[in-house]
Design a protein around this nucleic acid. Sequence first.
DNA 1: GGATTTTTGTAGTGAGCGATACAAAAAATG
DNA 2: CATTTTTTGTATCGCTCACTACAAAAATCC
Lengths: 197, 197
Amino acid sequence: MSDTKNAKPRGRPRAFDADEAVGKAQALFHQRGYDAVSLADLTGALGINPPSFYAAFGSKADLYGRALERYAKTEGLDFERLLTPEKAFDEALAALFEAAAVAYTADPGATGCLVIEGARGGTDAIACDKAKTLWRQSRQRVRDAIARRETGHADEIADYVLAVLAGISASARDGLDVDRLRAIGRRASLAFRHDGT
Amino acid sequence: MSDTKNAKPRGRPRAFDADEAVGKAQALFHQRGYDAVSLADLTGALGINPPSFYAAFGSKADLYGRALERYAKTEGLDFERLLTPEKAFDEALAALFEAAAVAYTADPGATGCLVIEGARGGTDAIACDKAKTLWRQSRQRVRDAIARRETGHADEIADYVLAVLAGISASARDGLDVDRLRAIGRRASLAFRHDGT
DNA sequence: GGATTTTTGTAGTGAGCGATACAAAAAATG
DNA sequence: CATTTTTTGTATCGCTCACTACAAAAATCC
């Protein structure tokens, strides 16, 4: 369609698939966190040398940004669908938290949410900001999805929903299995039994 | 009483107060996290040189351990008191989460819980384990305090309580003010309205 | 086929990290 | 005062980090 692949480039062809590399990097960052993944780890996993890495991705933080976006697209929760006004709010919340519990334990070696854990930041402020930006977007989406329903207090409820997601993510990284996470989510949704503005 | 201060030591006296230094280190670790505090930061803040640092504390991770213990003693939540069986469970939970909201924003430059955030770990596995050990102790204390009440499901409820605390801590580090944290805690306690097994 | 363009592998760069070697300094001990 | 013990300051150590200089290699363009 656009220029992703057509019109073969001029110089020596790249010996690796860049998109595939982003996927591998995403997995590494998810497993160990940004700070604990070194450039040597990345180039090793990708089977390339540093110059190829920098020619393709610019910097470690830039690749992290691409990994975050890829994660959001491929594994991010569909807040709009899960918080559909067609379901009672407590049931919608239960479904959302259930989906989080499953997603955050899907890969036992890469638990929790890449965005949430990344937004807590470590050494690199730039990388942390990239995650925080995505996290803010999630907050906005959740807030809007809630506001689209009848309930008032959208901001307050969004704070709660995001805090619970952060709690489930933290618990997942702590090693709790999917059933215990599920129970946390079910319990958290009970706060909205009988409507419960 | 024992040997903390009596019987003056033999060699050259230390030129700084070690306990006070642990307090300063605790503040630094709480502000920036373990990985983001360098040895140069620590020795700079303490006004000492590396050899004095290592003679007194052994290693950066060891000092971190002492800072964690100091934090748990001086700023840790009193789970046993807050979860007293004398109050209805939802009210006790509300009080616990309220206390967390206040504690996690007491110092605007050092938000969240030092133990929870430390247990998420970054580069240093040893430091992370020290925080995780304290976090496990908290889990046990919460579980026991709940089990001491009538309710069954102590383990499941403890999972929920700790997840909420982690969520409040994460939200605090995300910049939410104390009132928004309070609202999260109040909301979370509603899961146990009308008893709620 | 020669010129151009881009990627590749080799081999490093400077900076920052946690941690130390060493000898002078400051105290108690005899 | 001489000895012993511990802390101190100076000046690093070795290592890992993210990142790059450079020239050979591999493709297209004319």
